[in-house]
Design a binder for these strands. Structure first.
Lengths: 211, 211
DNA sequence: AGCAAAAACTGACAATTATCATGTTTATAA
DNA sequence: TTATAAACATGATAATTGTCAGTTTTTGCT
């Protein structure tokens, strides 16, 4: 089954609507298939022992959720929650496993994909441990603009709550709020309600690099 | 090519000796094959923009280095440096790619392996961002004992410098030293020179959990 | 529109962690 | 075996980040 084939299969599947805030699957769930994101954004997070959620990844159109757990036949390591209204489709485990075992091309393609995720995860580890909260928040805004784009008015297309931003960069919500306010005061970003726009990309890049 | 087959191939290869501190490959290197660890331990680390190394993973006997980069045909994302004297063997890229493309079993096996690495990386992200330095250092000692074992006298079989420990948990060397000293004073660990032994595993577990 | 609930914000303070300076011990090699 | 460097250690202090306790603003409903 090639990527095109997989896409075709997934196209024939009835899609399921998931409302903002709803859980697609939770940490510890046994998954009997994977979910393809057709529309909307999901946050993949893990509850730390101290009761805080850490958002490990944001998944959007084209992403496949639960893949890793299905492959290793383990229980889900992360939970997937809709950040906004979503459309997802489901592909049963058997279909995936059959293709994996019979078609090297498919397996290698999935392999490449997961290998890429692993690289990204390694980079996140370095960021988390070596950069300040301020740098990480600056990077987060840049990441949001580059990966989810802007709306007609220049605001980030994906709006996250301050709490979600804090959970992405791994800090307390109040700390995130304070730093975001500072960014506003310094003219790095502007905000209208929850909507945020990058106002001075160059300066924000500097902050992210540790200027 | 099954795992056993791969092992057999690698067994026929002449192994290369790498001395403590030597670099197997560096960040940005183009890899034309992977390295199998026969003996010894390698640290996989990445230089952060502020000039500090972050150790992302410790690889020991049986581990394969550079796999990810070969699969995605990218330049190495991490550097691999010997923590102690090592014995490694080399498998050229072509051999890997041929097997991947022709043998679904092999591809799936590698896939499982990388999927497992990805899970571990996600867990590290959560630890890094949600736990204190003290918790992370406690965890590091537990990890070292569980993964590398103890010598006849009960000391951790793998001895890391304080600097390396700091780079594993993502903190300043001085901070790591201070916390390790505290652990000694509290009787959680004992140390003879660089050698460290866990003295009170239960209490150390408590610290790791945030007691 | 009006109201409850959630999210955003602010201040004061405490805790954690980094940095710099410097002394001591331990390992390494000529 | 010493000298020389590297690793370890500690103090003083600054910077960063977290926590708690509120107030204000926004959002989502009916």
């Amino acid at each position: 089954m090639s990527k095109e084939e997989l896409k075709r299969v997934s196209d024939t599947k009835t899609t399921k609507l998931v409302k903002k805030g709803e859980t697609i699957f939770g940490e510890g769930d046994k998954l009997n298939g994977v979910f393809c994101v057709r529309d909307g954004v999901s946050k993949l997070s893990k509850l730390s022992p101290n009761g805080k959620d850490q958002i490990v990844k944001l998944a959007t159109q084209g992403a496949v959720l639960g893949q890793r757990s299905v492959i290793t036949e383990e229980v889900a390591n992360l939970s997937a929650i809709a950040v906004n209204d979503m459309e997802v489709c489901f592909i049963p485990k058997d279909a995936i496993m059959d293709s994996l075992n019979s078609n090297p091309n498919f397996a290698v393609e999935v392999l490449r994909h997961i290998a890429h995720d692993l690289k990204e995860a390694d980079d996140v580890i370095v960021n988390m441990s070596q950069k300040t909260v301020k740098q990480r928040i600056a990077e987060a805004f840049i990441y949001l603009e580059e990966n989810f784009g802007k709306d007609k008015n220049g605001y980030l297309a994906l709006t996250l709550s301050r709490e979600d931003i804090a959970n992405v960069v791994g800090t307390a919500t109040e700390s995130a709020i304070r730093i975001i306010s500072d960014f506003k005061k310094q003219g790095l970003i502007k905000a209208s309600g929850k909507k945020v726009a990058i106002a001075d990309r160059k300066a924000l890049d500097e902050v992210a690099k540790g200027g």
